[in-house]
């Protein structure tokens, strides 16, 4: 078939995309957060002393860290999904830098004898299973969005989707988790995030080709 002939078929196909990528992103964030919220409030639930915990800076900082991971990774989703868009990968450093600073503050504020217990915490296993579990819905939504678009770096696109998803998952989980030390968050939340991001990377390489 000649190239000019192919163009005639393309022109005749008026099946235009009903939504723009920006709207699709908003929709996938909403859908992903909703799935995570339902799972959280039905099966996991906030910790019983949450009203009291909300007065403590360590508890509040967990949300700063997880929400900044979600926000910065979400900023990369569209640029990664649109060919030729400018990419500011450096924003991903925000959450790690915040965690690093919080760890330094914690090490200064707490006697060294307590460092170990704070780092190990009481429910690391829940952290490593529930964060990935809460991230599944958002991850599926972001991968779906990416697949509808055109990521030229499928692996990295999947990884960013994984980071954004675990940012959302961890934000919910933080309200359940009773380990509030930045030391705990830095080790275990990050490990859980790495699991989700790795899954996103491989799923991206496999399913985001176009």
């Amino acid at each position: 078939m000649k190239t000019d002939e192919l163009i005639e078929s393309l022109v005749a196909d008026e099946a235009a995309a009903p939504v723009r990528p920006g709207a699709a992103l908003a929709l996938s964030v909403l859908a992903g957060a909703l799935i995570a919220a339902v799972l959280f409030f039905v099966a996991i639930r906030p910790r019983p002393d949450i009203a009291d915990a909300a007065h403590h800076i360590r508890f509040l900082f967990k949300f700063v860290a997880t929400a900044s991971l979600a926000t910065t990774a979400l900023c990369l989703i569209l640029p990664l999904a649109q060919p030729g868009a400018t990419l500011h990968r450096a924003v991903l450093a925000v959450a790690p830098v915040l965690l690093g600073l919080a760890c330094i503050a914690e090490l200064l504020a707490v006697p060294s004898a307590e460092w170990g217990t704070r780092l190990v915490g009481t429910n690391a296993r829940f952290c490593l299973t529930l964060i990935p579990l809460l991230s599944l819905g958002p991850l599926a939504c972001f991968l779906w969005l990416m697949r509808w678009c055109a990521p030229t770096a499928p692996g990295f696109a999947g990884l960013a989707a994984g980071l954004a998803a675990s940012g959302i998952g961890a934000t919910f989980y933080a309200a359940h988790c009773t380990d509030d030390s930045p030391l705990f968050v830095t080790v275990w939340y990050s490990l859980a995030t790495a699991l989700v991001a790795t899954a996103g990377f491989y799923l991206g390489r496999r399913y985001l080709r176009w």
Partner: peptide, 11 residues
């Protein structure tokens, strides 16, 4: 050209 067509919403 096919890709440009099917992914034109990403511009």
């Amino acid at each position: 050209l096919l890709a440009v067509h099917l992914k034109r919403h990403t511009w």
